[in-house]
Amino acid sequence: MKVVVHVDGGARGNPGPAAAAAVLTDASSGAVVDEATAFLGETTNNVAEYRGLLLGLERARALGATSVEVVNDSELVAKQVNGQYKVKHPVMKALHAEALSALQAFDAWSIRSVPRARNAGADALVNQALDAHRL
């Protein structure tokens, strides 16, 4: 089964309160099959973006997906995972390695970045999670 995994992460402030989200759809029908959010506490936007990716991949595995098409609005994460950009920061290196390991669980995978407007579902879930954790 192939799923399209829209993922996002965001921080209000950098670093600041952060959240990650994923919206999974059936690749054939486009129907939403799962949604998830995670409040991350205080972290950076880039860490939140990777956490969104990892959350989406975890949910895809739980659904039994064998193939994933990951869509996000972070060009940095997409290009790092695709090997086009180097990963230099130690925290990012660990998240990058975790993401590559998670992707190996699938028979096929791809990742690409799109403008935020084309990732609106995951973006909205990030904001909902952040709003829910306001002090």
Rank of each mutant, 00 (worst) to 15 (best):
G13P: 08
P15Q: 00
P15Y: 00
G16H: 07
G16A: 01
P17A: 04
A18Q: 02
A18N: 04
A20P: 12
A20I: 00
A21I: 02
A22C: 13
V23A: 00
V23G: 03
L24K: 01
T25M: 14
T25V: 15
T25D: 03
S28V: 08
S29N: 05
G30W: 09
G30L: 08
V32Y: 06
V32T: 15
V33W: 05
D34M: 09
E35R: 15
A36V: 06
F39M: 12
L40V: 14
G41E: 03
G41R: 06
E42W: 11
T43G: 11
T44P: 07
T44V: 12
T44H: 10
N45I: 06
N45P: 07
N46T: 14
V47D: 04
V47L: 07
A48H: 09
A48R: 02
A48L: 07
E49W: 08
Y50H: 11
R51L: 07
G52I: 00
L53M: 13
L54F: 08
L55R: 05
G56T: 04
L57H: 04
R59V: 11
A60M: 03
L63P: 10
S67K: 13
S67A: 15
E69N: 10
E69T: 11
E75R: 15
E75S: 10
E75Q: 15
V77G: 01
A78R: 01
A78T: 10
K79F: 03
N82K: 12
G83C: 04
G83M: 14
G83V: 11
Q84D: 14
V87R: 09
K88I: 08
H89F: 08
P90G: 12
P90T: 05
P90L: 12
M92F: 08
K93W: 07
K93D: 10
A94T: 07
L95C: 09
L95Q: 04
H96T: 05
A97P: 03
A97G: 09
L100G: 14
L100S: 12
L100M: 14
S101V: 09
S101Y: 08
A102L: 08
L103T: 05
A105N: 13
A108N: 10
A108D: 14
A108K: 12
W109L: 02
R116Q: 13
R118A: 15
A120E: 11
A122V: 01
D123G: 05
A124G: 07
L125C: 03
V126T: 02
N127R: 09
Q128H: 09
Q128N: 09
L130F: 12
D131W: 06
